[in-house]
């Protein structure tokens, strides 16, 4: 195993250590899933085929949102608060003198965390929901594979945004304001609140091209079979494009930050 594979494995194990926290997370996701699923059913009862989704698809959208919430870190959190705190207190000095790349190091650890959250907090809510709601889940294993690929790209986009947010600590010392703004943006522009297909006009056009749509809207649409053939390739390319652009931005800001700014503390 290479270094970053070990970092990812440790990232996975770190989160696996806290079983009660995981169970509490699953419980919360499930409760929210029920509340939102009934809300959606009421809405779709009034306006069938809203945004081109049938009611079963809409309910599936809700449960996928709950299942991916932790894995894709849509509300932020995970490594980002830790890194921001390390920058604020100066512990980032330790990360910097290691013979390792700062961004790859944290990306690996976040991928490990995401893998755990996908298993630990993703499977259970949707599995429970399948007993109570009619869900539209694909039969084809190929669709599931593309869905997982799309989720993985979404996690990388999410990481890249949170990495940039954490780096602002080098200048702001307190990144919590920016973290709150990005959490709000995450809820709204990922499609967590309502699928982005429902937003009309300019707002919808803008929401669909922002990076947050790569975190939930696109993976769920892949799962629901709304992207096929060339459309599927385009959707994945859109995610990969944002991932590459945001990672490059993070790398640039990181280089600038570590060369120009003080590492805090004696």
């Amino acid at each position: 195993m290479g270094l970053y594979a070990v970092v990812a494995a440790l990232g996975f194990r770190r989160y696996a250590t806290y079983r009660v926290a995981t169970a509490a997370g699953v419980f919360t996701n499930t409760v929210f899933g029920f509340v939102m699923a009934y809300t959606y059913m009421a809405l779709w009862d009034e306006r069938p085929h809203l945004g081109g989704y049938g009611v079963a698809q809409a309910v599936t959208f809700v449960w996928m949102g709950q299942s991916l919430l932790a894995a894709s870190s849509i509300l932020g959190g995970g490594f980002e608060q830790e890194l921001a705190e390390r920058i604020r207190k100066g512990d980032v000095a330790i990360d910097l003198y290691r013979p390792a790349d700062l961004q790859l190091w944290w990306l690996a650890s976040d991928l490990g965390r995401a893998a755990f959250h996908l298993l630990g907090r993703g499977v259970a809510p949707t599995a429970a929901a399948a007993f109570f709601f009619p869900l539209t889940l694909p039969d084809s294993p190929v669709t599931w594979l593309f869905f997982l690929l799309s989720v993985a790209l979404g996690v990388v986009v999410s990481f890249a945004i949170r990495y940039l947010v954490a780096l602002t600590s080098f200048w702001l010392l307190d990144a919590s304001g920016i973290q709150q703004i990005t959490a709000l943006a995450g809820i709204f522009f990922s499609g967590m609140l309502l699928p982005l297909a429902l937003f009309p006009g300019r707002l919808g056009d803008v929401a669909r091209v922002l990076p947050w749509s790569a975190m939930l809207q696109i993976p769920v649409d892949v799962l629901l079979g709304r992207h096929t053939g060339g459309g599927l390739a385009q959707a994945l390319a859109f995610q990969a494009g944002w991932a590459a652009a945001l990672l490059a931005a993070g790398r640039l800001v990181g280089m600038f930050a570590t060369r120009k700014v003080v590492v805090q503390g004696g």
Partner: peptide, 14 residues
């Protein structure tokens, strides 16, 4: 959050 052993294993790779 992890046992000492895990950190050392990481050092070995790093």
């Amino acid at each position: 959050d992890l046992p000492l052993r895990d950190s050392y294993h990481l050092m070995r790779r790093m």
